[in-house]
Amino acid sequence: MIIGIDTGYGYTKAAAESGERVLFPSVVGTGFERRMAGMVYDGTSEADNYELVVPGDTPEHYFIGYLALSQARDAARPFSDERSNAEEIRPLLLAAVGALCKGEPVTMVTGLPLEPFFKQAPGLKKSLERLSGTEILLNGSPVKIVFEDVIMFPQAVGALYGHLVRGGIRPSGVVGLVDVGFKTTDIILYDAGAKKPLEGYVDTIPAGTNDVVVAVQDEIKREVGMAPNPEWVEEAVIRGIPLTFDRRKFDVPGMAAAKSAQLAELVASRVARRWSDCLKRLEVVFLAGGGAALVQGAVSRLARCEVMPDSQFANAAGFLAKGLVTVARGKAGNGGD
């Protein structure tokens, strides 16, 4: 089985060749026995909740995604800028792959943001390969994770590659891609005629949708003198609901809308500087990532732009496309065996 998985700072997205997908916040917390589970409907389906146990002499018990947000006191996003080691994203990967693989061996394609990719990808690949053979319990069901191959591919390039393979890129000139993630925004130019990326116009902007969450958190802190947990703010943003904090109710969705405009202007400004001598040549700019719609208005002032279909899954779908092509070529090279 081939699976493309994007363990983003904000959300983990995974797509299998079967057509199945999973999507959940990249949040991990310590798990425990839930004696009241199912007594009250909390607005999420059982499929949205991931409880992971890694058996052993010292079993590891995790709540992941929405379950961690709603139940784990220590829910957090376990990401640092250094991602050469898979240990901190291991629960997310095991949950996503376990939910899709049905116990079958997996060719997994994943990646990193453009800026750290070439430095950190070799180490991450080796670390991921060592996870092969891990046995887990996912929502009570036993699954053994086996990797036949681990393929690394840069984010943003993955989104562009997937769009190309699906026939979504029809221009013959220069096209751009802006991939707005949770913590970073990748930008890349691609010469569709020559079928190659323009390396001098690639950049990773250290800003994303998390900036909106932090800005809302800071505004609440200025008003009441203390900051709410960022996961509480994020949950209010995700669900589009107010946040009650320190005996006050805050219109988090409304506050987030105002902060999103600031993010859009920042991204557009960096795009304009990096691509300054190519802006007049651009045929179209494709927008990908969970924050694509947030920057559309600002980027459209620079060039014609389009939000990719299912933009949040653009990299995961691109990784899957890369895996499908790579495996097909390998079989062709072996005479179809």
Score class of each variant (00 low, 15 high):
Leu93Thr: 10
Glu135Asp: 06
Ala76Leu: 11
Gly158Pro: 07
His163Lys: 11
Leu93Tyr: 05
Arg83Tyr: 01
Met152Cys: 15
Ala121His: 07
Tyr66Ile: 07
Arg90Gln: 05
His61Phe: 15
Ser80Arg: 09
Arg77Asn: 06
Leu137Cys: 09
Ser45Val: 10
Asp81Arg: 10
Ala121Val: 11
Gly98Glu: 03
Ala121Met: 06
Pro78Ile: 06
Arg90Pro: 01
Ile145Phe: 05
Met39Thr: 12
Gln120Tyr: 03
Val157Lys: 05
Ala96Gln: 00
Tyr41Trp: 08
Asp48Trp: 00
Gly43Ser: 09
Leu164Gly: 02
Cys101Gln: 02
Ile64Cys: 14
Glu87Tyr: 01
Pro142Ile: 04
Leu137Ser: 11
Pro78Cys: 08
Ala96Glu: 02
Arg73Val: 13
Tyr50Val: 09
Pro142Tyr: 04
Val40Ile: 14
Pro122Glu: 13
Asp57Ala: 15
Leu67Tyr: 00
Leu138Ser: 12
Gln155Asp: 07
Thr110Arg: 08
Val143Trp: 00
Tyr66Asn: 10
Gly56Glu: 04
Glu115Tyr: 08
Asp81Cys: 05
Gln71Trp: 02
Pro91Thr: 07
Arg83Leu: 06
Ala99Asn: 08
Leu128Gly: 01
Ser45Gln: 11
Phe79Lys: 08
Gly158Tyr: 00
Tyr66Ala: 08
Glu135Phe: 00
Val150Thr: 10
Arg73Gly: 15
Ser80Gln: 06
Glu115Gln: 10
Thr44Ala: 02
Tyr41Leu: 11
Leu114Ala: 12
Ile151Leu: 14
Ile64Gln: 12
Ile145Glu: 01
Ala47Met: 03
Asp42Arg: 11
